[in-house]
Design a protein around this nucleic acid. Sequence first.
DNA 1: CTGCATCCCTGCGGATACTG
DNA 2: CAGTATCCGCAGGGATGCAG
Lengths: 132, 132
Amino acid sequence: MGKRKAVEPDISIAKCRYSLLLEIIASKWAVLAIYAMEGGAVRYGEFLRRIEGVSKKMLTQTLRQLERDGLLEREIHDTVPPGVEYRLTPLGQSLIVPLRHMKTWAIAHYPLVREARDDYDRRAVNATISEG
Amino acid sequence: MGKRKAVEPDISIAKCRYSLLLEIIASKWAVLAIYAMEGGAVRYGEFLRRIEGVSKKMLTQTLRQLERDGLLEREIHDTVPPGVEYRLTPLGQSLIVPLRHMKTWAIAHYPLVREARDDYDRRAVNATISEG
DNA sequence: CTGCATCCCTGCGGATACTG
DNA sequence: CAGTATCCGCAGGGATGCAG
């Protein structure tokens, strides 16, 4: 039986469980937000200040998304200036582990990627020039 | 020295080395392409067939990006029907390791995330209804 | 302070057709 | 077979203003 090693019509990695993960981390804001919470609860305005370049719209959107996926908890303090704290759930914290592997890779291989990029771009420029 | 534990004007995780990694893997096509090459060299048309839903435009774009970052090599066979093979460089292969951690996490926690999502959505619907 | 609503514009990315 | 070029729709996401 089996074998049939040929064809493999479409291995279609597309709709596997991995796509779920992509939905989560494909947004850079999501990853940055998770990292911001690594040290403990974070307030809304704190995110805004710590994550450079994020807009209120994107921050709220990202936070909601993470909450929806059960990665963080929203804690509302009914004080007079309203205060809301966001903290990672255990599920969210568990995601930090593989994330850290990625970060480690990034730090270790950053120079190589940069170099490869520069080489590539340099070659591209030369090619363009020599075409005249 | 040191201490100064206060303020921390902007920890600004934004432009750290991690953003480089995000540039690479934030595209789902890039991750899928890398996985496709895990077993060895892959031809252009093979990508097209194996990665469901990818267009020629996006495929070429993704492949170029990965080549630029030194993650894959393009090998051109000057045969009569032109054949081009793409294979991971050692750098590209090294990325598979942390990627695998992510995949493992995804598979392990998929049910939890799904559940959290469903709960969240259910609550959202109820809230909408009770508002009338 | 925390957020939602609106406007608007850029560019991602799909479809199609053409070339080497 | 392996791309490149062009058109174009649509939504991601920034800026701003308002509300609780």
